[in-house]
Amino acid sequence: MQLSQELLFVFIISYVFAFCDTSPHNQPGKGQSVVTIERLTKHYGRVVALDNLTLQIDQGEIVGLLGPNGSGKTTALRLLLGFLRPTAGRAVVAGFDCWRQSVEVRRRVSYLPGELRLYENLTGRQFLEFLARLRGWAASGAKEPGNGIPDAPGLARQWGLDLDRPIRTLSSGMKHKLALISVVVAGTPIAILDEPTNTLDPAMREEFLALLRQWRNCGRTIILSSHVLSEVAAVCDRVAILKQGRLAALERLSDLRELRRVRARLARPVAVPGSVPGVEAEENGQRTYSWVVRGSLQPLLRWLAEQEVEDLHLEPVGLEQIYRRIHGDTP
């Protein structure tokens, strides 16, 4: 009885490790920095596409890059993949310089381009097999890069994609699914996704976001750029908001969830006490007051209870508000 319990324990442990196995890629331990970006700058002639971006991303983190078109998101991703030579600064992924050792970087990174162009003359199966051969495997699905990584045919069946159809006959949504499959089956410890849910239907979008959370639980690191704030808020651990090539804000989503905005209109102007515990920022208008509070609301509400309050609004400070503060209403 004792022995069988031990066997069961070993079985469970090995299953968990097998599912999350990323050992072939020699990645650092969870919590360690896998992506280090130091003062990364890219100029296109006189245009500054990215300006002094500094960012560290830990293993097992999902980091979202937000910003309107032309804010430098895609340039940052392309610099990480070694498509562009930095004008200044450097980026290091898994210990490898993104420009000088880009092949080693790309061995550890799978990428979903924002502007998706596939080999239209191939079938889905031929396409996946070709990419698998480039990664040095015999064929996609037949030889998996690590245990627990879904096989391509299984995933295609699950997502309703016929791998034997020529890519040119697939709809844009189906092409996107095929590209996502290529990213999933690559099984790399890091994934860079440029607007990954573009053209996906709502159900598929939810399924994909769930997959991203599953990846994170297995220790994979994901960098994604998106225009959909709700999506970023749903899956990301941190979000970097770019404005005109500069890092305008770097927020931890868990911290944002603790922030609330309190707005009140009082019957007459009052002198607000200098320090109400938890209040991080305040704005005063004519008889209207607004506070951003971290943690407990008690001290502020206690103070407000002593005032003649005409109107009171309480709302969480979401990503959208932060984004609006930086970019206005630009999508």
């Binding site: 993949l81 070694g82 498509f83 092949v103 790309r106 799978s110 990428y111 162009r117 596939l118 990664r135």
Partner: peptide, 8 residues
């Protein structure tokens, strides 16, 4: 883009 995303 797709090709250069692979380790080549």
């Amino acid at each position: 883009e797709l090709l250069l995303a692979q380790p080549i």
